[in-house]
Design a protein around this nucleic acid. Structure first.
Lengths: 214, 214
DNA sequence: TTCCGAATCAATCGAAAGGTTGATGCCCGA
DNA sequence: TCGGGCATCAACCTTTCGATTGATTCGGAA
């Protein structure tokens, strides 16, 4: 019997997940939370009650105003003998995936996954196996080399500031570098995204999932 | 007994909605569809089987690659004696809300709505009453006058092209106006959004829901 | 009739962005 | 060691953008 905690800010989604899991003989939903903080309190409650910790936490990334899924994942996986954390979310950017993986998530699924795939992923996660939704895996494999993102970390940082609407001067001040350096990074960003202006870089960055809407 | 059809590309969401409705004595889920086209076929099937048409269609807006909720709403409400269409979606831009309303939707809810609110909205929609989620109503009332959007239609048009990454010259060609006119509109857009550059206008436009990510 | 907002257009000038060329240093893998 | 990627920086020039000022026309409401 695999015990699962459900964390999602949408009541409908939690209800659907609970219903799906209740139909599967080896999976048991044992709790729900609407954001990361509530999930942490729930896990603490398990410990306080002397109950065995759940095997898997099914975690959304976006939680409205509450603690988001990456932060919650980081804290949960830092607990002694933590449950596996399986991310289940609607939308993914490269940054989302990397953040979740770095935070210790054992898997990453998109919400359009059919129930069988979800069940299979939960079983794998409970065993400690890594699970990536096929589109997510394809996204990550589309990178030329492991550890070699399409944009460098610095380039991505600058693209995000660009999408916040900052001019080059302000970006340079934010990052403590010269404006010439910002421009050089932009040249590289434009090459890699095959664009020729900041606005088209923002558009392409969003389209490819490198950055998300500000 | 209010009969409801559920249209959402996420199996989990459909399952959650079905479970919630099954718990309510006067609401009965009578069908599901994963996109707009399937919803239409389902309604045709009701007619072909001589079954009474459903009272309410609960419709998501974004359907992955399938027919989206606005188009489906338009077609459903064009049917003879159509069901009420209640939009239930994650995210809303002003354009989304207006499009859905223009397409004939009777209501607009966000997915974080608690189950009681959802049930109440379905009952209202079945009676033909208009239902707006509080944040959505607040958004629409935040407009200074009915019929007076924060940005004029032309300004919004230009902001959308800006977010696609087009330079002024290309925007002018796209809209068959002079570049000077584009610049004038931009001046007005920057004033209204209280920004001073195209990139910050894009960021503010997305933040306020005027435009969506490209 | 008057006023206001929207749409359109022009010209000028300064600022910002983009393009180009060139350079250095560091790290890592072959 | 060498080469490549990354990060940093500079200078110069061209293009685009933003700010400003000014104007006209049209439609709708008061």
């Amino acid at each position: 019997m695999i015990t699962v905690v459900l964390v999602d800010d949408h009541p409908v989604v939690r209800r659907g997940l609970r219903a799906l899991l209740e139909e599967l003989p080896e999976l048991e939903p044992v709790g729900e939370a609407a954001d990361g903080a509530e999930a942490l309190r729930l896990l603490e409650q398990f410990a306080a009650d002397g109950r065995p910790r759940p095997d898997v936490v099914l975690m959304d990334l976006q939680m409205g105003a509450g603690m988001n899924g990456v932060e919650a994942t980081r804290r949960i996986t830092a607990l002694p003998d933590p449950p596996a954390v399986l991310i289940l979310t609607t939308y993914s950017t490269d940054a989302d995936i990397l953040s979740a993986v770095e935070a210790g998530a054992t898997g990453y699924l998109l919400k359009d996954a059919p129930p069988e795939e979800l069940a299979s992923a939960i079983r794998s996660a409970a065993k400690g196996d890594t699970v990536l939704a096929p589109p997510v895996a394809a996204r990550l494999l589309g990178r030329s080399r492991p550890g070699r993102p399409v944009l460098s970390p610095r380039e991505l940082e600058i693209l995000e500031l660009l999408a916040e609407g900052l001019p080059n001067r302000q970006i340079s001040k934010r990052l403590f570098i010269s404006e010439a350096t910002v421009k050089t990074h932009l040249v590289h960003i434009y090459e890699k995204l095959r664009v020729d202006s900041r606005t088209s870089a923002i558009a392409a960055g969003m389209q490819t999932g490198l950055i998300r809407a500000r």
